[in-house]
Write a protein that binds this DNA or RNA. Structure first.
Lengths: 350, 350
DNA sequence: TTCCTGGTTTACATCGATGTAAATCGATGC
DNA sequence: GCATCGATTTACATCGATGTAAACCAGGAA
C-alpha cells in the first residue's frame, strides 16, 4: 500500500517527516500561522517544494466545513447575457477568494431534477440562481434552507436574498424613448405565452404603462410572445408581425437577442432601421454595440448585479449570524442610445 | 457541541440511529449496494427523508479520492466562442456525471498565477485548458503531471492530451472561397503581434498558402494584427486598413468577433458587404448567423470538440492505466456559407 | 537557582463518509 | 441435527487535514 503506481499522493505527513517536524507545524506554516520560527518555516517550505506537495482540498473542506466554491445556476451559457453575467460573477467571486461551479438549468437533462439538489451535492457554500422565469418548482427550490441569492424577480416569502432589476421602469423608459422620437405604432416582442410571470410580465407592464401615460391605446396585434428569447425567436416574431400586415414603426424587445433577431428579419424584408422601424433592446450585450445599425438598449448594469449578488452571498457566508432576514437589492438601469433609434442622421454617423 | 444553532449537520450517524441500523448500512443503501433487504432499505430511506439528510460530499471526496468535478480554464466567458464552448462542455460533462468549475485565464488577477495550481487547489479530477496562445508559462503548465486536455494547438512533449483544430486547412478553405468568388485583394485580420505562435500562426499559414497556390503575391499591407480578437479589435484593424487607403475586396478574419467588428466598421464607412468587400470569419458563433448581412464562417465543430475533450479526459480518469501515452485528436471543419460572401444576389435573399 | 511568561511545537481527537473483512443469520443439504 | 453457503449487516480502520489544549523551551524577574 505504500508504493504508489504513478500519482503523487504526498501528504502533510510526508512533508512533516522530511522536514523533521510535526504535521500540525506543516499545517501552521501553510496557513501562515504567525508563531512559527523562521528556521522551521524555511525547513517546511523546502520540504514542500522538494516533494511537490499540494494540499488536499477535500480533506480541508471536510475539516473546515466550507469549500470556497459558489454555485451559479443559469439557463444557458450560450446566451450572451448569461455568459457576460457569468464572466462578471466569476471575476467578483474570484476577487473574494471563491471559485464558481456552473450549472445550466435549461439543459434537457437537468430539466426535471432539482437544480439546488444537484448543486448541493457538489458541496458548494452558496448558490446564485438566475431562473429564466419562475415556475412552481423554482419557488419550492427557493424555500430551501441554503445560502442563496436569486437574480431577477423577487419571490415573496422565500428565505433567499434577492437582486432584482427595475424591469418595468427600464422597459417603460425604453418605450418612452421611442415615443419621444415620434413613434406611435410600437410593437413589443417577448411576452410570455405562459402568462403573467417573471421578468416578461414586469417588462410588459412597463410597455403598457408608457403607452397608457402617453394616451395611446394598446393594440394587442402589436404584442408578440416569444418562448425562449433567443435570436431565432426574435426573427420568428418579427416575420409574423410582417406577415400579418401589422403596421409598426417602433419595436421594443425584451432582450437584445430578440432585438438582434428582429433587426435581422426587418432588414431581410427591406425595412430600414431606424427610419422605417426604430428598435430598442434590453441587456446591453456586447453584440448590440457592433450590430448594423448599432442597437439602442437598456443596460441592467450587469457588473453591479454581479457585485451585489456575490457580495450578498459572501456576506451571508461570512457572518456568524445564520438567520439574517432575507435582503433585497434593486439595481437601476441605464439607457444606452445608439443608431437603431437615432433621429435625423444616417446610421453611419456617430 | 450537540446543539447546533441554525444549520442542519445531519450525518449518516444520525440517520443510522433513527433507522436502527449501522452507519455502513446507510451508506450501502445510499450507494445502491445490491445486497440490502427491502425492509432495511425502506427504513433507511424513511429516516433520510425525515431528517432531510444530505450527503457530505467533502467527506466522500476525501474517502474516495475523486470529486467528479472537471476544471475548465478559458480566456474569458464573455467571448461568444468560449461561452458556447463552455456550454457544450458543461453539457457533455454533465452527461457523464461531471460538473464543471470555470476559471478565466484572461483575468488580471489570474494573470501571473499558474492556472493549473489554482484549479488544483479546488480538487478537480481533471482539467480542460484552452489557452489563447501558448506562452512560456503555459508550456510549463502543460508539463504538470495532472489529467489534462489541451484545446487548440499542440504542444509537443507535453503529457497532456490534445484536441486540435485544422486551423491552417480551415483558413485556407476560407481564403480559397473568397478567391473562388473572384476576390483578389484579400486582407486578413488576426495575425499576432507577438509572432508566429499558436492558432494565429497556423491560420496565417492557411491564408498565405491559399494565395501562393493561386499565384497571388502576398502584400504585407493586407495583413493586420489584432491583440485580443475581440469585436473592437476587428473595428480597429478595419479602420486602419481603410485609413491607410489599402485597396481590398475580400477579408479573412481569424474569428467571428473580429469579422463582426470588421463588418460594423465597413458598413459605417459606407462599404457594402459582400459587393465591395466579402467577409469570412471563423468559429461559427451564433451572432454571425443573425448579423446583417449574415456572416460566412468556418465552423470548427464546437460540439465535436467538446465531446472529444470531455471524452478523452473522462476516459483517462476512468482507466486504471495512469500512464497512457498522450493522445491527440484533430477535429475537422465545415464551411458555412452565408450572405457576407454571397455572389450575384442581393443580401436580402436566401 | 527557581518561577513565570510568552512564543513554539506537538499529541490527539475529529470532520463524515467508505473499504475491508469478519460476524450474523436463515435456509439448504446430508 | 449439524455443517455449509450465500445474503445481510456490522465493527473498525482510514482518507488528509485542522482545532484544542497541553507540553516544551528560552529568557527575564525574583
Amino acid at each position: 500500500m505504500k508504493a504508489r503506481n504513478g500519482r503523487t499522493p504526498v501528504t502533510m505527513q510526508d512533508v512533516a517527516q522530511l522536514a523533521g517536524v510535526s504535521v500540525k507545524t506543516v499545517s501552521n506554516v501553510l496557513s501562515d500561522y504567525p508563531h512559527v520560527s523562521a528556521t522551521t518555516r524555511e525547513r517546511v517550505t523546502i520540504a514542500v517544494a522538494e516533494l511537490g506537495y499540494t494540499l488536499n482540498v477535500s480533506a480541508r473542506n471536510l475539516r473546515i466545513g466550507r469549500t470556497r466554491v459558489l454555485g451559479l445556476a443559469i439557463p444557458e451559457l450560450s446566451q450572451a447575457y448569461f455568459a457576460e453575467l457569468a464572466d462578471a460573477i466569476i471575476r467578483r467571486a474570484g476577487a473574494r477568494g471563491y471559485t464558481v461551479l456552473i450549472e445550466q438549468t435549461l439543459s434537457p437533462a437537468t430539466d426535471e431534477i432539482d437544480t439546488v439538489e444537484i448543486m448541493r451535492r457538489h458541496s458548494i457554500d452558496g448558490l446564485i440562481y438566475s431562473p429564466l422565469s419562475m415556475t412552481a418548482s423554482d419557488v419550492r427550490r427557493l424555500d430551501a434552507e441554503f445560502p442563496m441569492v436569486v437574480l431577477g424577480d423577487r419571490v415573496r416569502g422565500s428565505r433567499a436574498d434577492h437582486v432584482t432589476m427595475a424591469n418595468a421602469a427600464a422597459i417603460r423608459a425604453a418605450t418612452e424613448h421611442l415615443l419621444g422620437i415620434g413613434r406611435r405604432r410600437i410593437a413589443v416582442i417577448g411576452a410570455r405565452p405562459e402568462g403573467p410571470v417573471g421578468a416578461g410580465a414586469s417588462r410588459l407592464q412597463g410597455y403598457t404603462g408608457a403607452l397608457e401615460t402617453a394616451g395611446i391605446d394598446i393594440d394587442t396585434a402589436l404584442i408578440r410572445s416569444a418562448a425562449l428569447w433567443h435570436r431565432a425567436d426574435g426573427v420568428r416574431a418579427t416575420e409574423e408581425l410582417i406577415a400579418d400586415g401589422t403596421d409598426f414603426d417602433g419595436l421594443v424587445c425584451f432582450n437584445d437577442a430578440l432585438a438582434l433577431g428582429a433587426m435581422h428579419a426587418l432588414q431581410r424584408h427591406g425595412r430600414t432601421i431606424p427610419d422605417d422601424v426604430a428598435v430598442v433592446g434590453f441587456d446591453d450585450i456586447e453584440d448590440g454595440a457592433f450590430a448594423t445599425p448599432s442597437l439602442t438598449t437598456v443596460s441592467p448594469r450587469r457588473d453591479e448585479v454581479a457585485e451585489t449578488a456575490v457580495g450578498l452571498l459572501v456576506d451571508r457566508l461570512a457572518e456568524g449570524s445564520d438567520r439574517t432576514a432575507p435582503r433585497h437589492v434593486e439595481i437601476g438601469y441605464t439607457m444606452v442610445l445608439r443608431d437603431s433609434t437615432a433621429t435625423g442622421t444616417a446610421p453611419g454617423s456617430e
